[in-house]
């Protein structure tokens, strides 16, 4: 990093900023180190280096089930559903010229700021009173509600960055409106849609607040399973599961950053 640009404040802030960053990354790093340590308990700093706890994960039925039978398929399905619903909503918002359009946009993004714990409670009570059993479907519905805004935001930003004259050119060349959109605009939205879907996946994959109320028994997600086990089982296998969770999210984020460019969450 060269300091070509005048910014004494940046120099003053450099050390505090690094300290804050370390503070933010500290607990996750501890979990990863515990998962890689040889000790059979939560021993920190760890001694030795081993992948034993990751292979041990293969024999830890509940954690494994939570990851492969619940969290991953759930997050994939939720990402796909959010992608469809969210893209439609974003396109609808930008195409339509109607009263209350901006109010609707604000409404569509509320789930991002709405306290998730309250949404969890509200949905739990709704399903309980309607005698709907809690399954992956009900949990998925809750996740689609909180994940779709991320797709909408990404696609809206994508549409905002597209020159409308491209679609006008397609229409000028003889494409009817729907085809002009499909042929000229949609391909340009591909990266926005993809990054939106990745964020939807991650939000579902790391959610606790909705799952706290809507997952039960065999639909326990990985975060809920980790939450339930970490306090009572002094077992690095749980740390290995958590490490897997962090790794999947990090890799996805880096891929998005690398191939799609900066997208703000």
């Amino acid at each position: 990093m060269s300091d070509r640009r005048f910014s004494p404040l940046r120099r003053l802030f450099l050390v505090p900023a690094a300290a804050v960053l370390c503070f933010m990354l500290l607990p996750m790093t501890v979990v990863v180190l515990i998962a890689l340590g040889e000790s059979a308990t939560y021993e920190f700093p760890p001694r030795g280096l081993t992948l034993h706890w990751f292979s041990n994960l293969l024999h830890a039925g509940p954690l494994l089930n939570a990851l492969f039978l619940t969290s991953l398929p759930l997050a994939l399905t939720v990402a796909a559903a959010s992608l469809v619903v969210g893209t439609l909503a974003a396109v609808g918002l930008t195409r339509g010229r109607f009263l209350g359009r901006s109010a609707l946009e604000v409404f569509f993004l509320t789930p991002v700021v709405f306290p998730q714990i309250l949404l969890g409670v509200a949905l739990f009570l709704l399903f309980a009173r309607a005698n709907v059993p809690l399954t992956l479907v009900t949990l998925g519905i809750g996740h689609v509600v909180i994940c779709t805004p991320y797709v909408i935001r990404a696609v809206l930003a994508g549409i905002g960055g597209i020159d409308p004259r491209i679609e006008e050119a397609a229409r000028n060349l003889g494409a009817p409106p729907a085809r002009a959109f499909m042929m000229a605009t949609l391909p340009l939205l591909r990266s926005s849609m993809l990054s939106g879907a990745v964020f939807a996946f991650i939000v579902s994959f790391s959610d606790v607040n909705i799952a706290l109320f809507l997952s039960a028994g065999d639909t326990t997600t990985l975060p809920i399973r980790i939450l339930a086990e970490m306090e009572w089982n002094n077992d690095p296998t749980i740390a290995a599961a958590a490490t897997l969770q962090v790794s999947i999210i990090s890799v996805l984020l880096i891929l998005v950053q690398r191939f799609i460019g900066t997208v703000r969450a």
């Binding site: 607990p27 996750m28 979990v31 994959f205 790391s206 959610d207 975060p223 980790i226 958590a242």
Partner: peptide, 8 residues
């Protein structure tokens, strides 16, 4: 997930 951070 906040669970992982709290774990740490």
């Amino acid at each position: 997930s906040v669970v992982v951070k709290v774990f740490g």
